[in-house]
Amino acid sequence: MTFKLIINGKTLKGETTTEAVDAATAEKVLKQYANDNGIDGEWTYDDATKTFTVTE
């Protein structure tokens, strides 16, 4: 399955996707991606669209 991350950061905005077997696995990968890029904020997840959003 494809999961999307929408980034609403102070210095970085955009989106990325990852392939994962489930939402929990995708969340780990996407949170690591955000952490690697210095993004720390509030996370939400929409199961209907398989989209995570992080807002700083």
Results as ranks from 00 to 15, higher is better:
residue 9 G to F: 14
residue 20 A to D: 03
residue 14 G to Q: 12
residue 1 M to D: 09
residue 3 F to Q: 00
residue 8 N to T: 08
residue 7 I to C: 05
residue 42 E to D: 10
residue 55 T to P: 01
residue 33 Y to F: 12
residue 3 F to M: 01
residue 28 K to A: 12
residue 51 T to Q: 04
residue 24 A to R: 10
residue 5 L to R: 00
residue 11 T to A: 10
residue 8 N to W: 12
residue 6 I to E: 04
residue 42 E to F: 12
residue 47 D to K: 09
residue 44 T to F: 10
residue 56 E to W: 12
residue 31 K to V: 06
residue 6 I to D: 02
residue 32 Q to F: 05
residue 51 T to V: 06
residue 1 M to W: 14
residue 13 K to A: 08
residue 27 E to Q: 11
residue 15 E to W: 14
residue 15 E to N: 06
residue 22 D to F: 03
residue 18 T to M: 10
residue 50 K to R: 15
residue 27 E to V: 07
residue 53 T to E: 05
residue 39 I to F: 07
residue 33 Y to H: 05
residue 8 N to K: 12
residue 26 A to P: 00
residue 1 M to Q: 12
residue 34 A to R: 01
residue 51 T to S: 05
residue 38 G to W: 05
residue 23 A to I: 11
residue 47 D to G: 08
residue 19 E to N: 13
residue 35 N to W: 15
residue 28 K to L: 12
residue 53 T to I: 08
residue 18 T to H: 06
residue 22 D to G: 04
residue 6 I to P: 00
residue 13 K to C: 11
residue 52 F to Q: 00
residue 43 W to D: 00
residue 43 W to C: 02
residue 54 V to L: 11
residue 14 G to E: 11
residue 30 L to N: 01
residue 49 T to D: 04
residue 11 T to F: 14
residue 55 T to Q: 07
residue 19 E to M: 14
residue 26 A to R: 00
residue 6 I to G: 02
residue 35 N to A: 15
residue 16 T to E: 05
residue 45 Y to M: 02
residue 8 N to H: 10
residue 12 L to W: 15
residue 54 V to P: 00
residue 25 T to N: 07
residue 20 A to W: 02
residue 9 G to T: 15
residue 4 K to Y: 14
residue 15 E to P: 04
residue 55 T to R: 06
residue 5 L to K: 00
residue 54 V to F: 04
residue 19 E to D: 10
residue 24 A to K: 12
residue 17 T to A: 08
residue 26 A to L: 02
residue 2 T to D: 05
residue 32 Q to M: 10
residue 33 Y to G: 02
residue 40 D to K: 14
residue 30 L to T: 01
residue 51 T to P: 00
residue 14 G to F: 15
residue 2 T to P: 05
residue 29 V to L: 13
residue 25 T to G: 07
residue 41 G to S: 02
residue 14 G to M: 15
residue 32 Q to Y: 05
residue 31 K to G: 04
residue 22 D to I: 03
residue 47 D to R: 08
residue 22 D to V: 03
residue 37 N to A: 13
residue 23 A to G: 04
residue 16 T to K: 13
residue 48 A to P: 07
residue 3 F to H: 03
residue 35 N to D: 12
residue 2 T to V: 13
residue 28 K to Y: 11
residue 37 N to R: 15
residue 49 T to Y: 05
residue 23 A to D: 04
residue 4 K to N: 05
residue 5 L to V: 04
residue 53 T to H: 06
residue 33 Y to E: 02
residue 30 L to F: 15
residue 43 W to P: 00
residue 18 T to Y: 09
residue 26 A to S: 02
residue 46 D to I: 04
residue 39 I to A: 04
residue 38 G to P: 01
residue 40 D to G: 08
residue 26 A to Y: 01
residue 7 I to D: 01
residue 48 A to K: 12
residue 42 E to G: 05
residue 53 T to D: 02
residue 51 T to N: 03
residue 8 N to Q: 10
residue 55 T to I: 08
residue 40 D to E: 13
residue 4 K to I: 12
residue 28 K to H: 09
residue 24 A to C: 12
residue 33 Y to P: 00
residue 55 T to M: 06
residue 16 T to A: 11
residue 50 K to N: 08
residue 32 Q to D: 07
residue 2 T to N: 07
residue 7 I to Y: 12
residue 37 N to P: 01
residue 34 A to H: 01
residue 1 M to R: 09
residue 21 V to R: 11
residue 9 G to K: 06
residue 17 T to D: 05
residue 18 T to F: 11
residue 40 D to A: 13
residue 24 A to V: 12
residue 53 T to W: 07
residue 37 N to D: 03
residue 30 L to I: 03
residue 2 T to M: 13
residue 34 A to M: 06
residue 9 G to E: 03
residue 29 V to A: 10
residue 56 E to N: 05
residue 48 A to E: 13
residue 16 T to C: 12
residue 31 K to R: 15
residue 19 E to V: 15
residue 3 F to R: 01
residue 45 Y to V: 01
residue 28 K to S: 09
residue 20 A to K: 03
residue 38 G to C: 08
residue 18 T to Q: 05
residue 44 T to W: 08
residue 20 A to T: 05
residue 34 A to D: 00
residue 34 A to S: 05
residue 43 W to T: 01
residue 52 F to G: 00
residue 53 T to N: 04
residue 47 D to F: 09
residue 52 F to H: 01
residue 48 A to N: 12
residue 35 N to E: 14
residue 36 D to I: 08
residue 41 G to M: 02
residue 41 G to Y: 02
residue 52 F to I: 01
residue 8 N to V: 14
residue 30 L to Q: 00
residue 16 T to F: 15
residue 1 M to N: 11
residue 40 D to H: 14
residue 40 D to M: 14
residue 56 E to G: 05
residue 11 T to Y: 14
residue 36 D to P: 01
residue 18 T to V: 15
residue 44 T to E: 09
residue 12 L to H: 13
residue 3 F to D: 00
residue 38 G to N: 12
residue 24 A to G: 09
residue 43 W to Q: 00
residue 52 F to M: 01
residue 31 K to A: 05
residue 48 A to W: 08
residue 30 L to Y: 04
residue 36 D to S: 11
residue 40 D to Q: 15
residue 12 L to V: 12
residue 27 E to I: 12
residue 23 A to E: 07
residue 22 D to A: 03
residue 20 A to F: 04
